[in-house]
């Protein structure tokens, strides 16, 4: 089969269609000439070299390293965190940085103390409200005792129940610097103790009954006053 040099070259370069290539390659003569061409081109492929020293890469880098410039658009704006970090690393801002850190520490300490104080206030308010409730029950008890609306057994039971809570609140008020409250609860405790022990029924002398009635009246007035005072701002005085 006759094949031109140009066709042979196109066949070698894969530029002919698959059908054309298949048809041409049926000829042994074409195959032989193609093999010769491929061998020639392969010789160029493998033998044509520019001898270079082993450290050519290093030499090339030495020649271009000072010519390499980073294009402007490559600069990316640093992140906010990075900017803050850089600011701290700037010598002229080192003193300001130190002052800022100190201020942050003081602020954190102050805020921490505020939290503790807030917590204390909250605890005091809670105690004040509970004492108010206790005083309300005590007021009811004293009114019942004054009017003798309940039997002695009922008053005794009620006094025993109030006595327990009264002691708890007395201690709590004392620990919160509530001297007046603690004093009131202490006075209340004496009356409650007497009723809890069944004393009123056994006190039969007139002066004793008169004295108890007066103390009860006075205590009832103090309880009402204390309740009103505590209801204003929920503080223990």
């Amino acid at each position: 089969m006759n094949i031109s040099e140009e066709q042979l070259m196109l066949l070698h370069m894969g530029e002919l269609s698959p059908d054309e290539s298949r048809e041409l390659l049926k000829s042994p003569e074409v195959c032989e000439r193609l093999k010769q061409l491929e061998a020639d081109m392969q010789a160029f492929e493998t033998q044509l070299q520019n001898p270079l020293p082993d450290d050519y890469g290093h030499q090339l880098w030495q020649r271009i390293s000072d010519k390499i410039e980073r294009p402007d658009y490559q600069f990316e704006s640093p992140s906010g965190f990075r900017r803050v970090l850089d600011w701290f690393h700037t010598p002229q801002f080192s003193f300001a940085s130190m002052a800022m850190v100190a201020m942050l520490v003081l602020t954190a300490y102050w805020m921490g103390r505020q939290d503790v104080m807030d917590e204390t206030d909250f605890g005091q308010q809670l105690l004040a409200q509970n004492i108010q409730m206790h005083l309300t029950q005590s007021e009811i008890f004293l009114t019942q005792a004054k009017n003798e609306g309940l039997g002695n057994d009922q008053l005794q039971t009620m006094a025993q129940r109030l006595l327990t809570s009264n002691r708890i609140y007395k201690r709590a008020a004392a620990s919160h610097d509530g001297q007046h409250t603690a004093l009131l609860l202490s006075n209340l405790e004496q009356i409650l103790l007497e009723y809890a022990n069944g004393a009123p029924s056994e006190s039969t002398t007139l002066p004793a009954l008169q004295d108890k009635s007066n103390r009860g009246q006075e205590l009832l007035f103090q309880v009402k006053s204390m309740k009103q005072q505590m209801a204003i701002d929920d503080t223990i005085i």
Partner: peptide, 25 residues
């Protein structure tokens, strides 16, 4: 790509001969 010249040095050392060989062809 981030502008690190030393990293680019590695690239130069890796491809220097290949680039020169092609340029010579």
């Amino acid at each position: 790509q981030q502008g690190d010249a030393l990293a680019f040095r590695h690239i130069v050392l890796h491809y220097a001969k290949a680039v020169n060989a092609l340029a010579f062809r």
